[in-house]
């Protein structure tokens, strides 16, 4: 006998849900199915072995302008660990650690890993190294990579290429921007309290924020609320190009931060161009 309940049989009838629901769930699934981001390297730091830790630390401070961040000395006076910062880089050093087969170049009679130091004035640093007893492998000259530099061996047996790499091309990069405030004193105090901003006096009335990733100027006056400055390598050439493209450009002026020119796009948007001075 047939089961009357078989009348309940109901195959699946497709039905679409609300589009917003379907779209939101799809986005959620997409995010979950994304492959994880590959590991990002944040830094790579050399750890040098030296025969005389205390003397080496003083040498690197004097020649490279290194700043000592941390030092651990063992009971026998040996330097077990030291962290040094030079500019944007940090490195570490310690005396020999035979337990892990770490020997100094002095013991080895040679070296294996070498360092390349990219500084803004290689001639000065190179000169200091030589004056402090470094041996010259290669005097300052043009390198095959378009940089300028030379190579020394320091008194601890480590080899250093001391170079000044060509300046990165910042054309088109945002150099600066100014922000017109109602009351610079009050607003700058507000941002200091909120975000910890620190300032130095600017070239015109106002201040420059010095401790954030992008220098910005807070201004009392000016014709617009925000003005953006972009880098170029040739201010006269760039000004000519602006006019050629149908915009307007004022004659370049020079101040402590470099060459500047105020411009306007063909449809009236104001901006500025700059060739930053060294160090800016």
């Amino acid at each position: 006998m047939a089961d009357p309940f078989d009348a309940l049989r109901q195959p699946v009838v497709p039905l679409s849900p609300r589009p917003e629901f379907a779209a939101a769930l799809r986005a959620r699934l997409g995010a979950l199915l994304e492959p994880p981001a590959p590991p990002q390297v944040r830094s790579l730091r050399p750890y040098l072995s030296v025969a005389d830790g205390a003397a080496a630390i003083e040498w690197y401070k004097g020649v490279f302008g290194a700043e000592e961040l941390e030092r651990i000395t063992g009971p026998d006076g040996r330097v077990a660990h030291c962290e040094l910062r030079i500019g944007a880089a940090t490195f570490m050093l310690a005396e020999e650690y035979l337990v892990e087969d770490v020997i100094s170049p002095t013991t080895a009679g040679g070296t294996t890993a070498q360092m390349l130091l990219d500084v803004t004035d290689c001639e000065t640093v190179f000169g200091r190294a030589v004056a402090a007893g470094a041996r010259v492998w290669r005097p300052i000259g043009d390198t095959h990579r378009g940089a300028r530099g030379g190579k020394i061996r320091d008194p601890w047996g480590h080899n250093w290429f001391i170079e000044t790499a060509p300046a990165p091309d910042r054309t088109g990069d945002l150099f600066y921007f100014t922000w017109r405030m109602g009351d610079v004193a009050a607003d700058s105090a507000f941002f200091t309290a909120l975000l910890g901003w620190e300032y130095s006096p600017a070239h015109v009335d106002g201040v420059t924020v010095t401790n954030i990733n992008q220098p910005i100027g807070l201004r009392a006056g000016g014709s617009e609320r925000i003005r953006l400055w972009f880098c170029v390598t040739d201010i006269d050439g760039a000004v000519g190009k602006v006019r050629e493209l149908g915009g307007q450009a004022a004659e370049p002026v020079r101040n402590g931060a470099g060459w500047m020119a105020d411009c306007v796009t063909p449809d009236g948007v104001e901006f500025s161009l700059s060739v930053p001075a060294a160090g800016y």
Binding site: V12, V13, L15, S16, P17, A22, L29, L33
Partner: peptide
């Protein structure tokens, strides 16, 4: 495949 399948499978899953 799951994301490709999504548009085709959604009405069946939801309908059911």
């Amino acid at each position: 495949t799951l994301l490709d399948l999504y548009d085709r499978a959604m009405p069946q899953v939801y309908g059911y």
